[in-house]
Design a protein around this nucleic acid. Structure first.
Lengths: 225, 225
DNA sequence: TCAAAAGTGTTCAGGGTACACCCATGG
DNA sequence: CCATGGGTGTACCCTGAACACTTTTGA
């Protein structure tokens, strides 16, 4: 390869994944304890380095795959973090992504092998580097996304109740929502369809289960909540 | 320095600046012709490499300064672009920023020395690499920014008419706006204050000049358009 | 029988949108 | 005197917010 730019420095480029999931109804992040220096033993987002022959996006998918066993997960870039001393060990520029995964279909083994744990979004421990800043920015991006696109259905189980969906929205928007107004708005979305199934686990009376209809959404891509 | 991560690859990291300005009332980008290979001679965003001892943000400010002579310019990160072959010459990960600059106070000399030109946002020539994609993403970010924050005043001259401001919003939102409704909304913003001056250049009758009151905005940071 | 969550409509106000005509002036 | 851009007010609709009681059933 011709060395056009050889008078310039090369830097480590990393990715960090902010992995959102619903752990028994609670919006949570999948975190690990760092297994190497610097800051070994501290809580951390799952990260990895971008190698010369893979795109940044592909590196993020690879890191996520190693931890969860999942392929083709929905991810969105949060941004690049490039302070000189953000990693005290070396100069590393990191690109953060958030991922929305379905709690049910992740690979427990891979997860446990890497010492990963779900931690509630409002109970986060101290984290290494600038990871708290990445998380804050990811939450803002998520809020925008959730009010304009059907993203909740990537976190919710295939069948879900209105209470589950509302509680998820309340956590992400970080504000309480009126139950009747919420259900009224959802009822107008043709892509959220009721089933005949009742979930008896959450209450004596039981709650109707809904599902997200991808095909219907493709045809009527209106969404607002 | 300890080499914690030495088994991984190091990559070139660059910044590219999407420089918005009002060139005689038209929203425009400051573009240059590439002065080196690859794609020498093609139109390009102004870019540069991030060196080991400067933050990514600082690199963007440096690149912008070299071209415009300006310091402390308002910039917002657009995102990282990391496809393997985005630069056909070498593996380069680039972080894009957009900047809003005041057409009046830029340094013509630096600009001409680098063969830079203002080109209307709707008359862009073919550009090198993934720069069109960066610009598209920057325009989306700009649209969000303009509807929730007083950013227009970084592009407009210190004194401006309602027609100028409206036309700027129309270009950025990419839709026509009702004149009376627009003025009504602006009138409610305490940070946009009328002066007694009249601009006679644009019409026979003359148009009232307004200014943006930073201090007033600090005290009443409400803004919506 | 009671506790605990599910489910259900209406009213009201404020904001957003649509809309057309006169004004001032330089040439 | 006329062409050109500057400037102004109202009516209506519709969306978004507030708000409380009944239902079901397992324990």
């Amino acid at each position: 390869m011709t060395e056009y730019y050889s008078q310039h420095d090369r830097l480590f480029v990393a990715v960090d994944c902010i992995i959102f999931g619903l752990n028994h109804g609670d919006l949570s992040l999948l975190l690990t304890k760092r297994r190497f220096e610097p800051e070994k033993g501290k809580w951390s987002l799952m990260g990895g380095f971008v190698e010369a022959d893979e795109s940044v996006e592909a590196a993020a998918q690879r890191v996520l795959h190693d931890l969860t066993g999942l392929h083709d997960v929905y991810m969105e870039q949060v941004g690049a973090f490039g302070a000189v001393d953000r990693d005290p060990g070396e100069r590393v520029v990191s690109v953060a992504y958030y991922a929305l995964i379905n709690f049910d279909d992740l690979d427990r083994e891979a997860m446990e092998k890497l010492d990963a744990r779900w931690i509630g979004i409002n109970e986060l421990p101290p984290l290494c580097f600038d990871h708290p800043e990445m998380i804050a920015k990811a939450r803002r991006a998520l809020r925008r996304r959730f009010s304009t696109e059907p993203a909740a259905f990537r976190l919710l189980p295939k069948l879900f109740t209105m209470s589950q969906m509302q509680s998820l929205y309340e956590t992400i928007l970080d504000e309480e929502v009126d139950k009747r107004n919420f259900r009224k708005r959802v009822a107008e979305l043709r892509c959220v369809v009721p089933t005949n199934l009742i979930d008896k686990r959450g209450s004596r009376r039981g709650a109707r289960l809904f599902r997200f209809d991808v095909e219907e959404f493709r045809q009527h891509p209106q969404f607002k909540l």
